[in-house]
């Protein structure tokens, strides 16, 4: 038996999570209720976040930064007109999660908190250099997405902490894209790739999903690649560095070996979509 609690503020939600030992925050329920139905988790209390106004909505702040409330549903992210240019990748990722009906339910906060290595937001957010806003018994803090995933399904979220929002730097005019290899439509990724070009077209940011506990991002490698996007040797070296960072597993979606094979191919494929090589004589 699970009791459902519906606090109206973040502070109340945290107090309830602290008060009940086996309480869990409930966002869209798309993962948590499925797990409970399969008896994989048996929370005594579910602290529903759906009535907390602070967790809702997508806003653009004065400096252009975008704040996505943790309870923002995938369908709203997928349709959000603010997510242009360098942030378009996030919109694309949102639109590839599951299917239309599940996107009406799942939230960004829930998906980030769940930190499924094969899920779509984390690589997209890593590519966007997002920051997480976190509230907990000790107060509020911000955390770079790059410092978020510790290990397989382990994150920097502490006891009683919840994600309140995801902050994105102001979008810049530069193409970005997300590509996901999955067995069928709506499946989790076998491997995925989030990529954004620099505004001058000379460099890129890239994050690979489903090939390790968290998204793979090699910022030093990206720096080294600047200006050499169309140099096959440089690109191969860059992809090789990502492969070296990877720590994939064998699972029902594919072998570790396949995933390693996919990394350079995904990078090449998304790059050719974003920056088609010009036919120069």
């Amino acid at each position: 038996m699970t009791e459902v609690l519906s606090p109206l503020t973040v502070d109340d939600a945290i107090a309830l999570l602290v008060e009940h030992d086996e309480a869990m925050p409930l966002a869209g329920g798309a993962t948590l209720i499925a797990m409970r139905n399969a008896s994989l988790v048996e929370p005594s209390h579910l602290v529903s976040l759906d009535r907390i106004a602070e967790l809702r909505g997508i806003d653009r702040t004065a400096d252009g930064t975008i704040r996505i409330g943790a309870m923002t549903r995938h369908c709203d992210t997928a349709a959000c007109a603010e997510l242009t240019g360098s942030l378009h990748v996030l919109r694309r990722a949102a639109g590839m999660i599951a299917n239309r009906v599940v996107r009406n339910m799942g939230t960004m906060g829930g998906a980030v908190a769940n930190a499924d290595p094969a899920a779509d937001y984390l690589p997209a957010l890593a590519c966007c250099d997002a920051t997480l806003e976190i509230a907990g018994p000790e107060g509020r803090r911000s955390l770079s997405i790059h410092d978020y995933v510790d290990d397989w399904y382990e994150t920097a979220l502490g006891e009683g902490e919840i994600i309140t929002a995801i902050m994105l730097p102001a979008p810049v005019e530069a193409p970005s894209a997300y590509r996901k290899i999955a067995r069928v439509s709506g499946d989790y990724a076998t491997a995925s790739c989030a990529m954004a070009l620099d505004p001058d077209g000379q460099g890129l940011r890239v994050a690979i999903g489903a090939c390790g506990p968290g998204p793979l991002r090699d910022r030093a490698g990206e720096d080294a690649l600047r200006g050499k996007l169309h140099d096959p040797a440089a690109l191969a070296e860059f992809a090789g560095r990502l492969v070296a960072l990877a720590d994939p597993v064998d699972d029902v979606r594919g072998s570790a070996e396949y995933r390693l094979r996919l990394i350079p191919r995904l990078v090449a494929s998304v790059l050719s979509e974003l920056a088609p090589q010009k036919e120069t004589a």
């Binding site: 519906s6 329920g29 798309a30 499925a34 009406n104 339910m105």
Partner: peptide, 13 residues
């Protein structure tokens, strides 16, 4: 008015 999965929705909600 929005389609959802009844199996993932809590009645309490």
């Amino acid at each position: 008015g929005t389609p959802v999965r009844a199996c993932l929705t809590l009645t309490a909600r």
